[in-house]
């Protein structure tokens, strides 16, 4: 179940179709042995979320995902009381309630007797667990993915600190809930804002950048096996070249894969100007970028002898 060593991590992630660099494997292995969350930073679309999925699958553990956004608060991330269910139960149990309260003389006595039964309505029956609580109370160890933490508010980050340092939360009506198994946590961030130092201090840090040409080629081979090798190399080289350009949004790995699939679907023979101009929008999402890239390719065609 658990990873034996670093090589084991790399291999089992590989079985899940995830090519992990040495660094990624080391960090995952350390996270497991030190019981620490991982903070993965890097540009969008380099496979940070994918890593969590592969990690969970490699361990055979369920994946619990918490997607962060502006305005996310504790009740949406941790738990909520199910008001409607509580209401319904009070309606259905009206008779029983009457029995309990049947012989009371005064309003005060009724209230105090009802207060004794209060626990019934604030028990785990009526607790609606959200991802964080689910991860903590799960009967088997889980991988908890906290996606795009940089989009959540600072207050939420502070609240998360409490959960991540002790792996326990307190629900006022129920007391403290401690994790049955410590979940393995991966936080991802696209670096749209600086995270607090306290959060960083508690995590292992992993920077996932764009892969090298060879590594990206491996990924394309793995995920899009139908693409002919020489075409794949040409495609990846083009993407790498685009990444060096001054674009508003450079293509990510997922976009490379989309493009590779598009090339297969179109049955492309070579990456010439025509295929480029018809498929470039898969890679680039801004009109200005597309124009810039076309100009670059056009120049390259005139100057470079290798480009037909």
């Amino acid at each position: 179940m658990m990873f034996k060593d670093r090589a084991d991590v790399g291999q089992r992630l590989g079985n899940q179709q995830y090519i992990a660099s040495n660094e990624i494997a080391t960090v995952i292995y350390l996270a497991q042995s030190l019981c620490k969350p991982i903070l993965a930073e890097g540009p969008a679309g380099v496979g940070k979320t994918e890593l969590a999925k592969a990690w969970a699958a490699a361990l055979g553990a369920p994946l619990v995902r918490l997607q962060c956004y502006e305005g996310l608060d504790e009740s949406k991330a941790l738990y909520e009381w199910e008001y409607a269910k509580q209401m319904l139960y009070t309606q259905l149990l009206r008779d029983t309630l009457r029995n309990v309260l049947g012989d009371v003389a005064s309003l005060a006595e009724a209230a105090s007797r009802l207060a004794q039964e209060e626990d019934v309505f604030f028990s785990e029956n009526f607790l609606l667990p959200r991802p964080l609580l689910k991860a903590l109370t799960s009967d088997e160890p889980v991988v908890l993915l906290i996606d795009e933490i940089d989009r959540a508010d600072v207050e939420f980050e502070a609240f998360l600190l409490e959960v991540l340092s002790d792996f326990q939360v307190s629900v006022p009506e129920l007391g403290t809930i401690r994790a049955k198994h410590q979940p393995m946590v991966l936080l991802t961030s696209n670096n749209t804002r600086e995270l607090s130092e306290a959060l960083k201090r508690r995590c292992l840090y992993l920077y996932v950048g764009y892969p090298t040409l060879e590594a990206e080629l491996d990924i394309v081979h793995l995920k899009v096996p139908d693409l002919r090798p020489e075409l794949a190399r040409q495609a990846v080289a083009t993407v790498q070249q685009l990444r060096n350009m001054d674009l508003r949004k450079v293509p990510s790995i997922s976009e490379t894969l989309d493009w590779a699939r598009a090339l297969v679907a179109l049955n492309a023979r070579a990456i010439d100007e025509e295929t480029m101009s018809s498929t470039l929008t898969v890679l680039l999402k801004y009109e200005a970028d597309v124009q810039k890239a076309k100009r670059m390719m056009g120049n390259g065609g005139r100057r470079g002898p290798g480009n037909r």
Partner: peptide, 9 residues
């Protein structure tokens, strides 16, 4: 790598 992931954030 083990030093880098623990020390540099």
């Amino acid at each position: 790598q083990s030093l880098r992931t623990t020390l540099v954030k």
